[in-house]
């Protein structure tokens, strides 16, 4: 039993480790393995970067940020999805359930409308993503309904409110350049990921991932009814808040850097459950690896498949929707 899962985890790890470096070779400007080796050995080579400067900037200034951002966003969204699904005891929940995505979307639209510049837009998206969830959480605290139910309802309400606000910004935005920028941003893309921005994504994602990874066995207990989990000795209020804070931070950071990328947070945890069972001790690491590898692959397709870049959100939907139909038709539990 455990042996089977360990073998699968090793295979998944190897896939992740293959996909990542392989992505450096993909793109319109071809980089040979020889030049990659030369770049990596440049610090120890007498000639330094001479002769491979173009390759160097292609790899480090263009491809590395993109591949790293894709891996971070993929890992963040699928882990956040897995955590939220457990917390809400519902496998159909996605990371934007509490309004993180629509809040971030509004933040970005507002940033573009006020001509904030790239970094300003990212920060604004991140802050509004956090703000939306904080709002939903506060509303649910004052509700007299049962904990998770009021949280979901508040999330849906805040989500649609921010979506409406985004529509309003689109309405009043300049139709020549702001409106297309907002629309394109909302479709999701990693095309503008730059090396300097990586720490701004990496920090919140890692800060969110570490506690979830450490607490992952406890999240199992959170999937039981609230009374049950408390009687088992879990301080559910505190654990739930920790999960919300971590998952929200990761989601908001992801959306801030990549725009709306649908389905990853919903479908990847599903697949991980099919392959690794329900225990969060395996589910969280599996979601990290599979989510990262998946989004890196999809992003490779996005930048290589057509002459012009295909928005990532469109591609993940094209892949995610049929997969989801398959899950619904098979009951989502093909486990023997």
């Amino acid at each position: 039993m455990t042996k089977k899962y360990r073998r699968r985890m090793i295979v998944l790890g190897l896939v992740f480790l293959t996909v990542l470096p392989a992505s450096f070779f993909l793109g319109r400007y071809s980089v040979s393995a020889g030049s990659l080796l030369r770049i990596l050995s440049a610090p120890f080579h007498p000639a330094g970067l001479e002769g491979v400067t173009t390759e160097f900037s292609v790899i480090f200034r263009i491809r590395l940020p993109r591949v790293a951002a894709a891996a971070l966003v993929g890992a963040a969204l699928s882990t956040a999805g897995a955590a939220y699904q457990g917390m809400f005891r519902n496998p159909m929940v996605s990371p934007d359930i509490l309004g993180a995505s629509s809040g971030a979307g509004f933040g970005a639209a507002l940033g573009i409308f006020l001509s904030f510049g790239y970094l300003g837009v990212t920060v604004s998206a991140f802050l509004f993503g956090l703000g939306a969830v904080l709002l939903a959480y506060s509303v649910s605290r004052f509700s007299r309904l049962e904990g998770t139910l009021s949280l979901v309802l508040a999330g849906v309400m805040i989500s649609s409110l921010f979506t409406a606000c985004t529509s309003f910004i689109k309405l009043i935005a300049d139709a020549q350049d702001q409106l297309p920028a907002i629309t394109y941003w909302l479709m999701g893309s990693l095309a503008s990921a730059k090396l300097e921005d990586l720490p701004f994504v990496a920090a919140p994602v890692v800060i969110g991932l570490v506690p979830l990874f450490l607490l992952r066995w406890r999240v199992n207990v959170l999937t039981t009814e609230d009374d049950e989990a408390q009687s088992l000795g879990i301080n559910t209020g505190r654990l739930r808040l920790t999960v919300i804070v971590c998952a929200t931070m990761m989601t908001a950071a992801s959306v801030a850097v990549s725009g709306m990328i649908a389905w990853v947070g919903l479908v990847i945890p599903h697949f991980c459950r099919l392959m690794f069972g329900f225990d969060y001790r395996r589910l969280i690491p599996a979601s990290i690896l599979m989510g990262a590898a998946f989004l890196v692959v999809v992003d490779n397709v996005a930048r290589v498949a057509a002459t012009s870049e295909i928005p990532l959100g469109i591609l993940t939907s094209f892949i995610g929707a049929p997969v989801f139909v398959y899950l619904i038709l098979t009951g989502g539990e093909a486990r023997a």
């Binding site: 519902n90 496998p91 999937t223 088992l232 879990i234």
Partner: peptide, 18 residues
Amino acid sequence: PAFNYTVLDTVLMGVASQ
């Protein structure tokens, strides 16, 4: 249950307080 945990995994949730 919401998630189809195995019987063994379900029983093990009982040690959370320890």
